[in-house]
Every structure is written in C-alpha cells, then in structure tokens.
Design a protein around this nucleic acid. Sequence first.
DNA 1: ACCTGAACACCGTTCAAGT
DNA 2: ACCTGAACACCGTTCAAGT
Lengths: 185, 185
Amino acid sequence: MRADARRNRDRIVEVARDLIRAKGYDAVSMDEVARTAGIGAGTLYRHFPTKDALHDAVIEAWADKVNEAVDQAMELDVPARDRLLQWLKDYTAMLTTHQGAAARITASLGVAGSPYEAKCQTYLQANQRVIDALGGQLRPDVQAMQMCRLVGGVAAVADNSELPPEAVSAMLEVLTDGFLAPKAA
Amino acid sequence: MRADARRNRDRIVEVARDLIRAKGYDAVSMDEVARTAGIGAGTLYRHFPTKDALHDAVIEAWADKVNEAVDQAMELDVPARDRLLQWLKDYTAMLTTHQGAAARITASLGVAGSPYEAKCQTYLQANQRVIDALGGQLRPDVQAMQMCRLVGGVAAVADNSELPPEAVSAMLEVLTDGFLAPKAA
DNA sequence: ACCTGAACACCGTTCAAGT
DNA sequence: ACCTGAACACCGTTCAAGT
C-alpha cells in the first residue's frame, strides 16, 4: 500500500471515529466524513466499500479491549455475581462510547456475511469465556449467544436513549440475577 | 371529514400495516404505500405528516390489546413467575408482529414529543399494572420504565433477528428470574 | 376540503476522467 | 495505484396546480 493511501486510510478512520462518537452513526454521512478528511468520496469508497465496513474499522480497537475486560473482571477477588456484573458494565460502557455500535453488532449476531462478523465472534467468545469462568454458578442453560443478545439489547437501549449510568447498572443487575438464578422446576 | 378522505385514510393504514408486516418498517417506502393505496404522495402526507406518524396509526390497534394481555396474564391461577413470564411472552409476540415497532417504541421511552408517545404511555401503564399485581413478589426496586426498557430490548432483538419462539422464551425466562430475584445485600 | 404528481433535499454508492 | 468530483438511485417530504 502506498504511503499516501495508508495516510488517507488512517485519517478516514480517525475522522469517522470522532464524528460518530460525537453525533452517532446515523447522523454522520459519508460525504461529511470525506469532506472532513479532505478527500474525495471515491477515495473513501476505495478504502471502505460500504458505510458499515467503515464503521467496522472504527470499532476495530474495541475488539482488543473486550478480552482485557473479561480477564480483569474474572480475576477480581469477589463473588461470582459481582464479577459477572462488572463484566456486563464494562461491556456496555465500551459499546456506548461508539454510538450505534451496540444495536448493529447485536443485530448482526448469527447473520453470516455481515460486515460486523468478526466483532460478533469476539463478542461471542468473550461471553463464552465468562460462562466458562463462572462455571456452575450460572443457570445451567445459559448460552453465549443468549448472553450476547440480552446484554446487547440493554446496551442498545442504553445507547440510543443516552441513559445515565445508574439506570444502566440497575438493568444489568436484573440481568445478572437472571443469569445466576437456578432454572425453576 | 369527507367520506372519500375517510376512505383514503383507512385504506392507507390498512395497506401500510400489511406492507410493514411483510417487509418491516425500514423496507417500506412512503412512495410504495401511496402507490399501493392508489393515491398521490401528497394525500398520504395530508393524512400523516411523517412516516413515524403513519407507523403510529398502524400500531394503534395494538394498544388496546396490551391491556387485555395484562388482565389475562394476571388472572391466571398459577405462581407469580408464570404469570409474569406469560405477560412478557404475550407482549413480545404482539410487538414482533409489527416489525420494527419494538425498537422504535423502546427508543421513544421518555422522549417527550415523539410520535409514539401515546404508545409509550400505554406500555408504561401496562407494566406498572403488572408490578402492582405481583406486588411483593418482585424485587423491591423494579420500576415500570426499567421493565419497559428491558423487555423492549429483548423484543427489539427478537424482532430484527427474527428469532424462533424458543430462543425468545429462553431470554424472557432470564428476565423473569431477574425481576423476581431479591436484590443481593 | 381534498387530491395529484412533479420537484427538492439528502444520502449511500458508482464511475469516467485525471495524476 | 490512487485520487477526484460529478452523477445516479432512492427516499422522506413539500408545494403549485387541479377538482
């Protein structure tokens, strides 16, 4: 890749990240990204074939942090409930920084060929690791996909209603207790 | 209102309902609604100032059914957990018939002046009635708004991923147990 | 009063032409 | 190879002109 192309690519992602954080995915147009980055629309599309693909690149850094968050939460020296809750909070916090990401990743769960497929995998694996770490403390029928959907749902709501942290925590506590509770006979 | 206007209005809502059920809110254009209803675009906008306003009218009938569903579920002669679960299932079932409704109503919760405001009120009151009916069996800090958001989140996920009923039930069971569980000390 | 349909603004995406 | 920017298709919404 030529040096100027590389520079353009990096600049696009940076500009897009800032714009999306400030205004949300839907409110940022591709034209605005191109104009702010000081390039033509064609260049933008040469690097990223669709708006979703650009969004995926913007979220890229997030994927690494997810696994860190799992490790940190699972290593805490507190009861299972608190470790689980900590992970759920970290996750929603990370996703709500990228406005619009929670809804899109959650909607892509299980959809083959979506631009967010890699992120979905990361997210699924993260939750699987949480399930493995907490072992028998969780209800026996929890599945990673299910956790992803439930937490993603909460994150999406928190995201586009811009809820205060307490409101999000309260919802996540309900989920936490639901995940821990034994299945009724 | 003139007879022909009345007829047009009814026809618009009917056509829009069928189209949205079949293809989902986003995939139906206002032009398509007008064309299918056999009227001009201007007429459509004379009756409904925005696409959301039309959607709200399409969902209108749903609002009545919500309260029926609460009554039926609360009158069942079964444990609190089962009554709660029944209501949650009924609610998500109703909302997923109108593709795209769950996400929009949930997103409008607490947003003053949204076109879905009346539906949000109905929905909030319904959940408040559930909370009242189940009284002390629920965790002490549940709030109607919180239930609306959590259930709306699940419904939204179920809706746009078109999940099978079992997957939805499984998620709602987690929520149910979460709502019932006593808050940890 | 109510209807029509061409027109506008905006946005995601493409492509012929340039270096 | 990579870039530019005009152009296209589509969609929500408006409005001048008709009955």
